[in-house]
Design a protein around this nucleic acid. Sequence first.
DNA 1: CGAGTTCTTGACAGTGATCAAGCGACGTGG
DNA 2: CCACGTCGCTTGATCACTGTCAAGAACTCG
Lengths: 220, 220
Amino acid sequence: MPVGLNHEDMQKLDDVVAVRRKVNQGESLFRSGDAFTSLYAIRTGFFKTCVSSEDGREQVTGFQMAGEIMGLDGITSDRHNCNAVALEDAEVCVMPFANVEELSREFPVLQRHVHKIMSREIVRDQGVMLLLGNMRAEERLAAFLLNLVQRLHARGFSRSELVLRMTREEIGSYLGMKLETVSRTFSKFSEDNIIEVKQRWVRIIQPDALKKIFNPDICN
Amino acid sequence: MPVGLNHEDMQKLDDVVAVRRKVNQGESLFRSGDAFTSLYAIRTGFFKTCVSSEDGREQVTGFQMAGEIMGLDGITSDRHNCNAVALEDAEVCVMPFANVEELSREFPVLQRHVHKIMSREIVRDQGVMLLLGNMRAEERLAAFLLNLVQRLHARGFSRSELVLRMTREEIGSYLGMKLETVSRTFSKFSEDNIIEVKQRWVRIIQPDALKKIFNPDICN
DNA sequence: CGAGTTCTTGACAGTGATCAAGCGACGTGG
DNA sequence: CCACGTCGCTTGATCACTGTCAAGAACTCG
């Protein structure tokens, strides 16, 4: 939050994120249909968000980690439109949306920030559409791993090692494939010596090979 | 735009949307990489938006018609992230985003409206993810037709007849399938007497059958 | 009217889904 | 601390859906 505000103004902003909430592994932060009141910024932990169709099909729409914002889906209809489930014990900042809007009016820089966050979510979703609409299983998983490790690295974790917080089934749901296919694709990457896998633990041996799979044309 | 504003305030809002722009069929309103300055509200005509990956794969991310807003993708990075192409001669209102933000600060009701529009886009995108991740060809096309005819009906067009403004290939790109599969699925629906198709012209004979295909469990 | 685009249809192939079985890890309780 | 049950993961065999390639028909537009 890059701003040049005085002490009093900073205090106002701080107050918005003053309320914290813990969410245990497996619990929902909010559910589809819940009244929308707040956005949530993840302090610690890891979430998945998923939507489901009336006939019960479920689609994981994203995995969120520290620093990311959840709940934007609720603004349109004043009801949440997806479930946010903690994949490990987590803590979030509760940001009442009325307060966010009020402060946005007062501080243009915050207003712009809020707009950028929402726009980023739209762009991210469009990237997922590209992945789901155009790519094959190997490409999807390669893109997924690269994206995940890149976000983890931005938070100070290793560039080559990660521990998956989600099951094969959840990965599959996100990537539009079945858990068996996820497992097989992991095994294939492992056989090809591109990654090393042991259950949830993954080590990326050849990041360039992953990039090449994900993006066949840019091979340098 | 349901508001209780005085004449002067109304004037300010009007000024934001004062500038119009015509876009001929086949032309782009904006392209990926263009500097982002404005949002666009469609007055007349029909658009597609599409993103493309570095290696040239293209994904249609949506079809937009009168009253809908385009350009939200550009806010994050101050550059547009997709191409908006007119599928028929069109006219849009140019809404400089700086003005939108300024007026949003002044009029909370407008601010809320802008937020709802962005949130609606996020929710829509998540619905597309569900479609791309979980559904089979027939279900995708059924959902597509129902969505399209519903939006057209909300604009005063027929509930059962429509003229597609896009090619089979564009439909396929949006739905994550090949143009041949789109064509075959149209033919199948036609054989089953669910719809009548003649090139771009479509008549929905049994909307309930489409709903049932789209949503197998809710069969009433 | 003719060139080019779009659409349809057929035959075949391949990717990933489905069904099934077994293995391994983890947690709980004896 | 170990036995056991559960859940998640892996792997194999088979099948179905959709993609690919190809050809021709229908439509559009200059």
